[in-house]
Design a protein around this nucleic acid. Structure first.
Lengths: 236, 236
DNA sequence: CGTAGTTACGTACACCGTACGTAGTGCGGT
DNA sequence: ACCGCACTACGTACGGTGTACGTAACTACG
């Protein structure tokens, strides 16, 4: 489609091909895949129109035939990642199914560390996001609750998983832009934090750090959090 | 401090004044306040080194005497916002205190809509963030649990509030960069969503939208979520 | 009192998103 | 069959970004 002017539009409502004119050299999936490849390898900030175009092997401005704004490129990326969600036949135990949903989402985000940063309710209605949402609702069929409650459960679980993975990956992703290593960054921050705690102004934090001397078990923390969210919605 | 080369460093460990040389024209707080003013008025994307410098009334590069990287400017902003957290004497009812914490954080983020986007565990150890964390732990003194559990509670509540407010504000903040209005954006997305649902491919989503015809009560949803998180950590 | 370390800041570079103009291509309507 | 138009492709250009670097003025310490 042409529509060169600035017009409110959802990328999913725009047809990929209109029949008139030369056939496009790439599909939307090609473009999303190229952007995802770059983001996976070099981080989200490396996803520029120029880079994606170069990865595809076309001129920068040709991209704008497929994607009216960079924002829409992000939307394609999120949907492409959502396509990796594996859906299964719900087994009747909604708690088990939700656990599986949470774990799978976490794995997806660890595979694509840029995903948490792009998560937005605005992108929540892309084709694959809709499939995913419908699947979650199907998993929740055995739960006796209003759809409103079920949607709140899904939102809370998804939000928790996103926040969790983001925190887990944040330093690693952030440090890409920095001229020093993640270890150096952590070391210098820990040294500062140690100094603050030693100042005596934060007795409870000091006690907390005394208590948990060893490295924290991320898996266990995640599993506990999932269980807590699920419990919060279980009847009784 | 000079340190022109790229050296790992925490902004809070760097002294504001070293004695030698002309006295700086601004304090760190001046700079943070200027950046916050711009972000509040024009959105986070308007916070550029040039804009902030202009707001202060100095040359762009002078800012780099106070803040080695833009990243650190963000850190100052988050800390400045954290300074607005009002701390109180914990009243002995940790559930009530945590409710108050959650509501206050939400209000803070609605006052500074850019805050959710900047929330990061990396910024979690700024001076005011430390005060806030210690205060939360103090509120949790009556709760009989390990400090590890208390920290998990605080993280989950904070994360939930952040996610919630972000979702609430996302379209509004995003639409600043778009050449059309928030209403147009919403209208066009709702039209698309309506079409998808009408397609019959998502029966449960269709049922969900049938159920909740009216506009959702954001306050009630938030309060329910807070209560659920608190309940998830309450003994028994 | 000299000098080293600081502040101030203009210039310059590489990169970004994207508006716009132009050329070529192939389907739809006549 | 063919004309015209809607489309694809893409180079150029503009206004913006973060920040490396060079230079000049200033002040506290040895």
């Amino acid at each position: 489609m042409a529509v060169r002017g600035a017009v409110p539009e959802v990328i999913w409502a725009r047809p990929e091909r209109t029949g008139r004119g030369p056939r496009p050299a790439y599909t939307r999936d090609d473009i999303a895949a190229a952007a995802v490849r770059i983001a996976d390898a070099q981080g989200l900030d490396a996803v520029s129109m120029r880079h994606v175009a170069a990865e595809l092997g076309c001129g920068t401005m040709s991209l704008y035939n497929y994607v009216p704004r960079k924002e829409d490129l992000y939307e394609l990326m999120v949907d492409a990642a959502g396509a990796e969600h594996e859906l299964w036949e719900p087994g009747g135990d909604w708690r088990a199914d939700m656990r599986r949903v949470a774990r799978q989402t976490r794995e997806l985000m660890r595979r694509h560390p840029w995903l948490p940063r792009l998560m937005s309710p605005v992108y929540g209605f892309s084709p694959h996001a809709l499939r995913y949402l419908e699947h979650c609702l199907a998993c929740l069929d055995p739960l006796e609750a209003a759809y409103g409650t079920k949607l709140e459960l899904i939102a809370m679980l998804n939000g928790m998983v996103t926040t969790y993975v983001r925190n887990e990956l944040d330093t690693a992703e952030r440090v890409r832009a920095l001229p020093w290593s993640e270890d150096e960054e952590n070391a210098v921050r820990m040294a500062y934090l140690g100094g603050r705690i030693a100042s005596g102004g934060y007795p409870r934090m000091a006690a907390a750090f005394m208590e948990d001397a060893g490295p924290i078990d991320l898996e266990a923390v995640f599993e506990r959090a999932v269980e807590r969210v699920i419990d919060a919605f279980a009847p009784r």
